[in-house]
Design a protein around this nucleic acid. Structure first.
Length: 137
DNA sequence: GCCAACGTTGGC
DNA sequence: GCCAACGTTGGC
């Protein structure tokens, strides 16, 4: 299976990249949206994940990796919701802002732009690479 | 099964 | 803090 690429959102006030780095790994719990759940279930260990700060920040700040595939989310009140485990790989040298992403022709169609409320979304490898490059300083 | 009302997310 | 977008809920 080839590597897949994803983007996850977190409000830095709730759980920031710094929190994530301090923790060294985290269970990505709390997703309560069917579309996002489908994406979580499709994640495989080794997949690369961009970590986006929503609200305060509005920028991609780092790269993470899937370390455990979907398992039941024990923080949910009902059965059926899942989480994955993620671990930080590296921060971006320069955060890539939403404005930068919107300005890139290659990135205009990504869900981050088109489907504003989705919290877990797939990226094509070209899209992932482009954002990574924008963040390499 | 449609659709109006409602709640939440997240950019501005 | 406001509000647009959109997902979810519930009445019919």
């Amino acid at each position: 299976m080839t590597t897949q690429y994803w983007l996850v959102k977190s409000e830095p006030e709730t759980y920031s990249w710094a929190d994530f780095v301090r923790d060294k790994r985290t269970d990505w719990t709390g997703v309560r949206n069917y579309a996002a759940r489908l994406h979580l279930k499709a994640m495989r260990p080794g997949d690369e994940v961009l970590f986006y700060h929503s609200n305060e920040g509005k920028c991609v700040v780092g790269i993470a990796r899937v370390t455990k595939p979907a398992f039941p989310d024990t923080t949910a009140d009902e059965d059926g919701w899942v989480a994955v485990e993620l671990a930080p790989v590296a921060p971006l040298k320069q955060p890539v802002t939403l404005a930068q992403i919107k300005a890139e022709a290659v990135l205009k169609d990504i869900a981050l732009v088109r489907q504003g409320r989705l919290s877990v979304m797939p990226l094509k490898s070209a899209e992932f690479v482009r954002i990574k490059k924008l963040g390499s300083g």
